[in-house]
Amino acid sequence: MEKTKIEDLPWRERQIVEVIYRLGEATAAQIQAELSEEISNSAIRAMLARLEDKGVLTHREEAQRYIYQAVEEKEVVADSALKKLVGVFFDNSPANAATALLGMADKLSAKDIDQLQSLIDKAKKEGR
């Protein structure tokens, strides 16, 4: 079975995966506590089982509890999601996305500005 991409999950399953990425790993009870809407523990457990079947999550057993973690590294998923976001909302233009992100920042530190300038210089040098 081919692994499901996180961005293709139904919204509730995606919420659960986002909680796990935020926490690093989590039990069903921890996930339930993190969600803003009321959802039963049995519903969460059913979705966790589906997410395992889809190849998105895995678990280990510890002290008679299942602890869930994501199969894909957070950075890999973030890169994929960001590419999709830039494609859909910014016409595949990283410059447009960066402009929007910079517009959201109230104040950038000197370190942030230096890091951004370094990345721009590197891209320019590489002809990107």
Score class of each variant (00 low, 15 high):
A26Q: 00
K122P: 04
K54R: 13
S93P: 00
V77D: 03
D121A: 12
A43C: 01
Q69K: 14
I16R: 03
G103V: 08
V88E: 01
G103A: 09
A100S: 10
S118E: 14
A123E: 08
L23T: 02
V71K: 00
L119C: 12
M104D: 04
K107G: 07
G55V: 05
K125V: 02
K5C: 03
A26T: 01
S80F: 08
A70L: 07
K111I: 13
R128C: 13
A26D: 02
Q117P: 01
E2I: 10
R60Q: 05
I113F: 09
N96D: 13
A63Q: 11
I113Y: 06
S42K: 08
E34S: 13
D91A: 10
K124C: 08
V19T: 10
T58F: 05
Y66R: 14
A26L: 00
S93I: 01
R45P: 05
D79I: 14
N96M: 12
A100Y: 14
N92F: 11
A95R: 08
N92S: 15
G127P: 07
F90I: 03
I67W: 01
A28F: 09
K3Y: 07
L102Q: 00
G103S: 08
A46W: 06
A95M: 09
K5V: 03
F89G: 11
Q115H: 09
Q115M: 10
D121I: 00
M104P: 06
K3A: 12
K125A: 13
E38G: 06
L102I: 10
P10L: 10
K83L: 14
Q115N: 11
R65H: 13
Y66G: 02
I120M: 15
V17G: 09
F89R: 12
R50N: 14
A81N: 03
V17C: 04
A95L: 15
F89C: 15
M47H: 11
M47D: 14
P10T: 07
L35A: 07
E18M: 12
I31W: 03
G127L: 06
Q32D: 01
E61H: 06
D53A: 15
I16M: 07
E75M: 00
L116P: 01
A49W: 01
A63W: 04
F89S: 15
M47Q: 08
A97Q: 04
Q117M: 12
Q64S: 10
E62L: 09
L101H: 04
A29R: 09
R12L: 14
E37D: 04
S36F: 02
V77E: 08
E37G: 03
V88L: 11
V76Q: 12
